[in-house]
Amino acid sequence: MEQKIPTMAEMAAEGKQPEILFWVGCAGSFDERAQRITRDICKILQHVGISFAVLGTEESCTGDPAKRAGNEFLFQMQAMSNIQVLDGYNIRKIVTGCPHCFNTIRNEYPALGGNYEVIHHSQLIQQLIDEGKLKAEGGENFKGRKITFHDPCYLGRGNDVYEAPRRALEILDADLVEMKRCKSNGLCCGAGGAQMFKEPEPGKRDINDERMLDVLEAKANVIASGCPFCMTMLTDGVKHMEKEQEIKVLDIAEITVRANGL
């Protein structure tokens, strides 16, 4: 990164409090593809001049996959120690790079004493666009490209966020198309509910391959999403079809960064 990414520990040592905490998430921290999205979210924050920090090595998994898999003990252990860290830094506002982290911290931490204002990065981008701080100029031109948005379950159905990510696409000069199964009727990528960490049960085909039928039908050449797990599954789906040349899978943050040449 051109600019240094401040951690909460460093900020606290300087007696500073950032406007917002960027909760990176495990995929955003470790998965190579998701790391690029993480850096792009930082570029957007830096571009508009929002003061932010990350927890860095003090961040730990929210416990989402444990909870969905039925391990409530492990989830609550993770949640409570995260809440201790967050409250220790007196954090009030959080932006996440992952719908699973977003859902868990926003909806499931309050019952364990963690109360924060939590937004997903697509909502941050929407806000910035609406405030006129973020446009789509000076970068890559998406004119004539067919973009479709794949709704992550924990952003869409899970939390009724459907318009924010689409807002980021609407400002592009691109051709937006919806898949047959979209918004509240969107088809899962196949990774949720801790499926990401296990082999699927026996069946006719994998869920991400099923999703590719919708992509092909919509004739999209860019699949936009807002979730690192969807990213993995959709990228694999495109690979299985051997369509890597024609169809790109991009996060909303990456598209925003490209459109602005950040």
């Binding site: 998994c61 444990a66 492990l74 296990k198």
Partner: peptide, 24 residues
């Protein structure tokens, strides 16, 4: 395995917590 990783290194995968900021 995923549970074990989360307990040991705070992530569902086997990565060291000390490497969490390497992306930066």
């Amino acid at each position: 395995n995923m549970f074990g990783n989360m307990e040991n290194n705070g992530a569902p995968w086997k990565y060291s917590q000390a490497d969490r900021l390497n992306w930066a």
